[in-house]
Design a protein around this nucleic acid. Structure first.
Lengths: 216, 216
DNA sequence: ATCTGTGAACTCGTTCACAGCT
DNA sequence: AGCTGTGAACGAGTTCACAGAT
């Protein structure tokens, strides 16, 4: 159950959302080919991904949704829950705060940071905004291990360094630059500018996009 | 100069931003290993990517930044410019509108859509908001080929279908579901929920993330 | 008859390593 | 000596294809 690839983890998160929906719709079991159709992969890929979490389906009856969801939660979630720090409360930062607030009990943004004195000490979407100057201190005190960077490109590296100093082990980076961080720190880039430019490029080509490039 | 992979296109966009910065800093030429260090790849990879656009560097002197930027613009940009339609003016949609407004002359959001009557017909960040009911019509009239989807998951598929009906060839999808679109339509998913969950997962593992998984 | 689990084959993107140039 | 361009080797991730289960 070790050394699962980042691609597989991403797909597991997607399967989980699909399974929740299916459960809500009243389904109790599901076949790999059904999840494949919903998630855009192949049945074999779904089965391999599920192998990673060590849950076995039953031949002919597929996977029992209820049990599979439990196995996934055990595998993907931290039983104590995890806190997230969000840095940069510009338009995007505020949108993210609104989007994630109160959604997942196991994974919540519990600290926000900005340089703007007008925002500091205000509470937005149930989350207190601190001065960036106190970032390392607050992150360390709360034991936060996940950081989200929504600051302009020029400040992103410095913020990332401070997050890591405070004890953060994984960063979700919205700034359009490549962060340089120590080994062992996970970085996930969500570069909207590049994404839009790519889309624009392929809008002009008769793309026979081979399904599997879709990954994010 | 055909059949360039999406990974390569993405990196080309990144190189271009780096090159602009280097140019602003007064540099006139650059080596593949410099771009590699800045972009987080290897020198060989940079050279292969640049081969794709058909620009040749000069041995010993590297690549002439000015010329390379021109070649990239010729390769990546549409000479007439491209318009983008943005659907969904919630927090995220508005943030994107603000973020992209007036930034790139060649690639601008020129139409926005929402169902909320309070938003319809207002102009935000220089962009007019139309009723979703008029989506197909407006997109077709303007000849828009790139769409950005910022609506809730439940409506995303329907919006995507309408965009394609209106003539859109590439979609940037922020909704956390997999869109099902005809072959030849490019889809780029930016799934923030999955991204955050992945980051949370890897924050707990002693990740020896093998550099290259960073892709988006 | 129709599913799962999985070794083996395959694919495609990256890196290696070196010839060619200056 | 130090770079670029590129054939060849490599490797991670995906699909194929089938044995095993019901």
């Amino acid at each position: 159950m070790q050394n699962v690839s980042t691609r597989t983890i991403g797909r597991l998160c997607i399967y989980r959302r699909l399974l929740s929906r299916l459960k809500d719709e009243g389904k109790t079991s599901v076949y790999s080919h059904e999840l494949a159709a919903l998630s855009g992969g192949s049945a074999a890929l779904v089965r391999r991904d599920l192998m990673a979490i060590g849950y076995s389906g039953t031949p002919y009856h597929g996977y029992v949704i209820e049990n599979l969801l439990s196995s996934m939660a055990a595998f993907l979630d931290d039983p104590q829950g995890q806190q997230v720090a969000l840095v940069g409360l510009g338009n995007l930062g505020r949108a993210l705060l609104a989007y994630f607030s109160g959604r997942r009990p196991h994974l919540a943004i519990t600290a926000a940071f900005d340089i703007d004195p007008a925002k500091v000490n205000r509470v937005m979407h149930g989350c207190r905004c601190h001065a960036v100057a106190r970032l390392v201190e607050v992150v360390r005190e709360k034991g936060i291990q996940v950081g989200v960077i929504c600051v302009p490109a020029l400040q992103a590296q410095s913020i990332a360094d401070q997050l890591v100093t405070g004890g953060v082990r994984a960063v979700l980076n919205f700034a359009p630059i490549r962060l340089h961080l120590p080994d062992g720190i996970y970085v996930e880039d969500l570069d909207m500018t590049t994404a839009l430019e790519k889309a624009a490029y392929f809008a002009r080509k008769k793309t026979k996009q081979n399904k599997e490039n879709r990954r994010d």
